[in-house]
Amino acid sequence: MSSGAEKMGEENLKIWLKDKRGDPDRLPEKIFLPPGSRLLELLEALPLAEGAGYYTIMVNGEIKSRTVELKDGDEITIIHLPVGG
């Protein structure tokens, strides 16, 4: 986990994670990232089992590109999308 997970500063974004893969212990409940972080940076910081390319990410319930900039309080849903998906 990136150092952002442990550091909480006024300037950091607080991002809530909803791990929906039936593996709730793997990921933290929330993560802190520097302002201006994109979804891409968040994914690089997470221990995703099969590489980020195999997951679809929703930001506040919407399917988003990995270049989308995150906002404080954003809620992330991580969906494993396997074969044929």
Partner: peptide, 16 residues
């Protein structure tokens, strides 16, 4: 595919 075939799509689409 070996572990679950195509079935994980049930969970993926449900969550989406």
């Amino acid at each position: 595919l070996r572990r679950h075939g195509t079935l994980p799509l049930v969970r993926s689409f449900q969550e989406m």
